[in-house]
Simulated scan of single mutants.
Amino acid sequence: MKHCAILTMDNLSDFECYDYLLDEPLAELGWATELISWRAEKVNWDAYDAVIIRSPWDYQDDASAFILSLEQIDNSSARLQNSLSTVCWNIDKIYLKSVAEQGGRIVPTLWHENFSKHDIPEFFDYFSCQQLVIKPRISANADNTFWLKKETAMQFAHQLESVFSQSEFMVQPFINSVIDEGEFSLFYFDGVYSHAILKTPKQDDFRVQEEHGGYLQTVTPEKALLTQADDTLAVITRLTGDMPLYARLDFVRLKNDDNNNKGFALMEAELIEPSLYFNMDDKAAEALC
């Protein structure tokens, strides 16, 4: 019997987590599983054959400590998945810039640090838009993500300065199709496409996560989206030099002012701790195992 640690957090009570669906198919393949928090101390990682990063959904609160924990695992005899190098590449959303430089299509983005309220009008002018999204470069679960409307944006100036005055952040035009249609997530295991879902926010919100009231449905991605996702994963593999055990690629449809389809743009490549929504496809957990 081999031993696999499922890396999680201290308390998942506020989250929807489906990693328990890995237990049975892993057991059938001769693996015993154990949940271990990334914050746990004095763990003998050599006692495990593999450690799969799954639900450490508070890592953004102390990213340096999280990386240190992963380094301890990586220095043991256990195999860490996804790899430490992939995590270090993916943990800062500046990776999107490198994807774009390699020909991948991303949502238009400005990269900034040391926020000032005087920057707000310039952001709207740069994108020629009426709505913006500002979020940290290191974040999860839409934490500290702000949806701003031009006419009321200055009301959030103090809060934005409090969050971003001494940190790096990213600015994007708000993509209306997030509300009108939703956000597509495509899942890959060892480079092989598994399944896809469409996530839509609740009314008057833009966050698509279940914890924020988002609605999920299984979908069959159209050919153009699947091709773009395949190409994006190929770019990521070239950039990291590593095929991830799992990848979730989040896309949104772009439209012009006349509401015509302009194709898809990558919102995020989730390679650290994405929910893989095993509950949405009855073959997904087995495929990963």
Rank of each mutant, 00 (worst) to 15 (best):
L239E: 02
A287F: 13
G263M: 07
E273Y: 07
D258E: 08
T220C: 13
F278E: 04
D250M: 12
K255E: 14
K262C: 13
L225T: 11
D231I: 00
A284D: 08
D258H: 11
P244K: 03
L233N: 01
L254M: 15
P221M: 14
A287N: 04
K223G: 11
T240Y: 00
P244W: 01
L226G: 07
D257N: 09
G263F: 09
R248P: 00
A284K: 11
K255P: 02
N259Q: 13
T240G: 01
E222S: 08
A224L: 12
G241I: 05
D257Y: 04
N279D: 15
T237H: 01
R253K: 15
D242M: 05
F264R: 00
D242E: 14
M280D: 12
L266R: 09
T220E: 15
A229D: 01
N256C: 10
E222L: 12
D257E: 15
A265L: 08
T240P: 00
N256P: 05
L276C: 14
L226D: 01
A265Y: 03
I236Y: 02
E268L: 02
N259R: 09
N279W: 13
E270S: 15
R248F: 04
N261C: 09
L225M: 10
T218P: 01
L266V: 12
I236A: 03
A285M: 09
D257L: 10
K255G: 05
F264G: 00
A234I: 03
A285W: 10
T237V: 09
T218H: 15
L249E: 06
A284V: 12
R238N: 03
Y246P: 00
Y277W: 15
K223M: 12
P274W: 04
A285Y: 13
R248T: 06
D242Y: 02
M280S: 10
M243E: 04
P221L: 13
E273T: 07
T220A: 12
L239V: 06
P244Q: 05
N279K: 12
M267D: 07
L226F: 06
F264Q: 00
D258W: 05
L288T: 08
T237A: 04
P274Q: 08
Y277V: 06
F251E: 00
R248C: 05
T220M: 13
E270P: 00
K283W: 06
L239W: 03
R238I: 03
D230L: 05
L276N: 13
D258M: 07
K283M: 13
F251I: 09
L245Y: 12
A285E: 10
A284C: 13
E286H: 09
G241Y: 04
S275P: 01
F251S: 02
L249M: 12
L249D: 04
L239Y: 02
L271A: 04
N261G: 05
P274H: 01
V235Q: 02
L288P: 00
F278V: 06
